[in-house]
Measured scan of single mutants.
Amino acid sequence: VTVDIKGMEYHFDNPEEAKKFAERMAKELGGELKVENGTLKVE
């Protein structure tokens, strides 16, 4: 699973970990979490 945090890509084997990480980063950065082509994106 790929997580894109404002252009920086992180790769996770575990989808649950990827989702938790993306949600935490969205909250910390005040960004919006989206799913695009199987990639979790925070913008």
Rank of each mutant, 00 (worst) to 15 (best):
V1Y: 14
V1C: 14
T2G: 02
T2K: 11
V3H: 01
V3I: 05
V3N: 01
V3Q: 01
D4E: 14
D4M: 15
D4W: 15
D4P: 02
I5K: 01
I5A: 02
K6N: 15
K6M: 15
K6L: 15
G7T: 02
G7D: 02
G7W: 03
M8L: 11
M8A: 08
M8S: 08
M8W: 10
M8Q: 12
M8F: 12
M8D: 06
E9S: 13
E9K: 15
E9C: 15
E9P: 08
E9G: 06
E9H: 14
Y10I: 05
H11E: 04
H11M: 08
H11I: 10
H11W: 13
F12W: 01
F12Y: 02
F12D: 00
D13Y: 06
D13N: 11
D13L: 09
N14L: 05
N14G: 05
N14K: 05
N14C: 10
P15W: 15
P15H: 12
E16Q: 09
E16F: 10
E16H: 09
E16P: 01
E16I: 09
E17T: 06
E17W: 03
E17D: 12
E17N: 05
E17Y: 04
A18Y: 03
A18K: 00
A18Q: 00
K19H: 11
K19S: 07
K20V: 10
K20H: 08
K20W: 09
F21Y: 05
F21K: 00
F21T: 00
A22P: 00
A22S: 02
A22N: 01
A22L: 08
A22C: 08
E23D: 08
E23R: 05
E23I: 11
E23T: 06
E23Y: 08
E23F: 06
R24H: 11
M25S: 03
M25L: 07
M25V: 07
M25Y: 06
A26D: 02
A26S: 06
E28H: 10
E28W: 13
E28Q: 10
L29A: 04
G30F: 07
G30P: 03
G31L: 14
G31Q: 06
G31K: 04
G31V: 11
G31Y: 12
G31N: 04
E32L: 13
E32A: 12
E32S: 14
E32T: 15
L33R: 02
L33E: 03
K34H: 10
K34Q: 07
V35S: 09
V35A: 08
V35T: 10
V35R: 06
E36R: 07
E36K: 07
E36F: 11
E36W: 08
N37G: 11
N37Q: 07
N37R: 05
G38L: 05
G38E: 05
G38P: 03
G38S: 06
G38V: 03
G38A: 05
T39W: 09
T39Q: 11
L40H: 04
K41N: 04
K41Q: 06
K41A: 05
E43L: 14
E43M: 14
E43Q: 12
